[in-house]
């Protein structure tokens, strides 16, 4: 939408200068992302900005899905399986985060109890808590509780990485979804209570449907957090994901670099997809995903 109110008074020239400036600052990003994707369709890396090294091919993608690391090499990597593993973690994180924060966020927004304000501040603090200080002990607990049966241990490692990663996202998600609950008029909740509903019922049947955009927002953030994760997955998960696949193959890659570009592009795809689909939501609520 145009900022109609400012149209008459703002200077077109300054605007063009500003656009150019922001564009220049964005150039490294644009080039980085663009050339990665382009390289995945080329027989040679095009990151050197030399158009002559671009020779179009889809071999990289075929090799990637065939699980071969290079044209010649014999090592097999089940990339489809890795993608599924990544998705399992991401969906799991999203599920846990949504369930937990939607419950706690409601209580924080709508129920009065002693220490409520203090707890809310503590939750905010938890979000800024040094994750690296936690991961040592979280891993210690993991080792101590790991089942000895290998199949069970694999499943356990999935469950553990999901909940452990979700735990990092939950504080901010509670704050975010609380904001959405805050905006639902009290009268609607009171109406339901006068109609005879318990708080659990009000929550489920009246409040949840009214904060759907908020649920979507925290679900997307949590999904992306689970999807992008490297540290937790490499620390806890027995199976490989796309992140650990790329991480561990960076050194092998010299034989056939563009294949890794294809893997990276594949890994990037859902992120980009979410970006296009939920641009507005992300721009408005993205203060949630605070990293470096």
């Amino acid at each position: 939408m145009m900022q109609l109110w400012d149209v008459e008074v703002k200077s077109r020239k300054i605007e063009i200068v500003l656009i150019l400036a922001v564009f220049l600052a964005s150039l490294p990003l644009i080039l980085n992302y663009g050339l990665l994707i382009l390289s995945s369709f080329s027989t040679e890396m095009v990151t050197n900005l030399d158009p002559t090294s671009f020779r179009p091919t889809i071999d990289n993608w075929i090799l990637l899905f065939e699980g071969r690391l290079s044209v010649t090499g014999g090592v097999r990597e089940d990339v489809v399986r890795y993608t599924i593993n990544t998705a399992i973690v991401a969906l799991g994180v999203a599920g846990v985060v949504v369930l937990v924060s939607v419950m706690a966020g409601y209580a924080m927004s709508r129920m009065n109890f002693k220490g409520r304000s203090l707890i809310m501040q503590m939750i905010l603090l938890l979000h800024a808590f040094p994750g690296v200080a936690l991961i040592i002990a979280v891993y210690l607990i993991f080792r101590a509780t790991l089942p000895s049966d290998i199949e069970l241990a694999r499943i356990y490692s999935f469950a553990y990485v999901i909940v452990a990663r979700a735990a990092l996202e939950i504080p901010m998600s509670i704050w975010l979804i609380k904001g959405f609950f805050d905006r639902v008029p009290w009268e609607v909740e009171w109406a339901a209570i006068i109609d005879g509903a318990s708080r659990l019922r009000v929550w489920r049947e009246v409040m949840l449907p009214m904060v759907k955009p908020g649920i979507a927002a925290i679900a997307i953030f949590a999904f992306l957090a689970g999807w992008e994760d490297l540290i937790y997955v490499r620390t806890f998960l027995f199976d490989r994901t796309l992140a650990t696949y790329i991480e561990s193959n960076i050194n092998v890659e010299f034989a056939y670099m563009p294949l890794l570009a294809a893997a990276g592009t594949l890994y990037l795809l859902p992120t980009i997809l979410f970006f296009i689909l939920t641009q507005r939501l992300l721009l408005e609520t993205s203060t949630g995903g605070i990293k470096g």
Partner: peptide, 22 residues
């Protein structure tokens, strides 16, 4: 622009690392 600048935050760490690696 704002969407583009948000991308690094959301990009998988391994991919983002890969970009700068190159």
């Amino acid at each position: 622009f704002r969407t583009l600048w948000l991308l690094p935050r959301m990009t998988p760490i391994a991919v983002y690392g890969l970009l700068w690696y190159y």
